[in-house]
Design a protein around this nucleic acid. Structure first.
Lengths: 137, 137
DNA sequence: GTCAAATGTTTGGTATGTCAAACTATTTCC
DNA sequence: GGAAATAGTTTGACATACCAAACATTTGAC
């Protein structure tokens, strides 16, 4: 009867998920390392906000920093970043290819729910997509 | 590039959506009217929280109150409550019947995303479900 | 090596959404 | 009709997540 509170209990908030994704993408060419101001620029928020948000993500073990204040995902952070990205990609593909939703709306919807979908659902969706792949000769 | 901020721009928060749904369901037998303390009991939060949250929902035109402090959805509030409920129901059915997700997980996932799904996606999903109804004789 | 620019942090502010607890108002019971 | 229980509101607290602006630190240009 209080299923609705599961939302608050979610491992990651939408904001936290996007901080991790930003680090992952910005760090891609630099061995995983990213800078606070580049994360801020990428997310369109201030350096101050990122600084504070990273403190919490660091404390919770999702990111690590080095002596030059460079930021990197921990193993746990990398795992959840990849999980969220794959959920988003899978759901977006489903929306476009199966339901026929427009690309723009599919991007928005998949971005909104990427961090909320359970492993069970994302696995079943992947299985469904696999079974309904366009036929090949 | 800042699609991720659409989340914050969503018409309803998860909490707001569930306040509206609670009013809708509690009021069902009383001409739509519900009491603060029953809403609080239903949601599992304090009367104080509900009181404050309703103030905002009233200001934004989703609920109305009478001289006895009874609470009811406005036409707009009723519309969004119904929309959210139907999105949840449609998505949950899809998860269970099409993907084979467990009932418990489908309930949680659909509850988390019910207020985030666009009209376009929910319409396409409804259409998909309609086209894939179990065959009848 | 100095000075300016860029970067990172901190502080004080806002908004949401929760709590506990104090307070006020209403209803119910006898 | 008075006392107790119930209902509603308000206050002060906390957590998240943003901003602007002040501040500190680091980097880079010369």
């Amino acid at each position: 009867m209080e299923t609705w509170k599961e939302f608050e209990a979610n491992e990651l908030t939408h904001s936290a998920a996007h901080h991790l994704i930003a680090i992952h993408e910005l760090g891609a060419e630099y061995g995983g390392w990213a800078r606070v101001s580049d994360i801020a620029k990428d997310l369109g928020i201030t350096r101050g906000s990122v600084s504070i948000n990273l403190r919490a993500l660091k404390k919770r073990g999702y990111v690590v920093t080095d002596e030059h204040r460079m930021v990197k995902l921990s193993a746990k952070g990398l795992e959840v970043a990849n999980s969220v990205k794959s959920k988003k990609a899978g759901f977006k593909t489903f929306l476009i290819d199966v339901l026929g939703v427009s690309e723009a709306q599919a991007e928005i919807d998949s971005c909104k729910i990427e961090h909320l979908i359970s492993e069970e659902t994302s696995e079943r969706l992947a299985q469904f997509m696999d079974e309904h792949k366009p036929a090949h000769h």
